[in-house]
Design a protein around this nucleic acid. Sequence first.
DNA 1: ACGGTGACGCTCA
DNA 2: TTGAGCGCCACCG
Length: 103
Amino acid sequence: MKPFNFNRRVWAALKLIPRGRVTTYKELAKYLGKSKVARAVGNACGLNPYAPKVPCHRVVKSDGSLGGYSGGGKKKIDLLEKEGVKIDRGKIKDFRDKLYKFK
DNA sequence: ACGGTGACGCTCA
DNA sequence: TTGAGCGCCACCG
């Protein structure tokens, strides 16, 4: 195993997200210390081997769109709705209110 | 070591 | 408001 890589850090942050709440790549990047690593964050989620362990589906884009998902967008939407996050036309409803911020 | 790609973000037209 | 372009960092071949 390797030390705390950037990816590991991202996964750890995702685990901090409470149920029924979502976060954005930007906020996540900010939490890591860089507001421009949003791409790297997305990459981390894609490489995330802890798929079920890490709620990557709770991470969305800054516009409130789901962004993407490595298993099937439908599953992600259904999962989020189950958590209490309503999705409308592929965008999160009251996204701003459900947005979770670190620190 | 280098280049290309990506689950993104912001600015400009 | 929507669409297109540029820039950012990290990972993979």
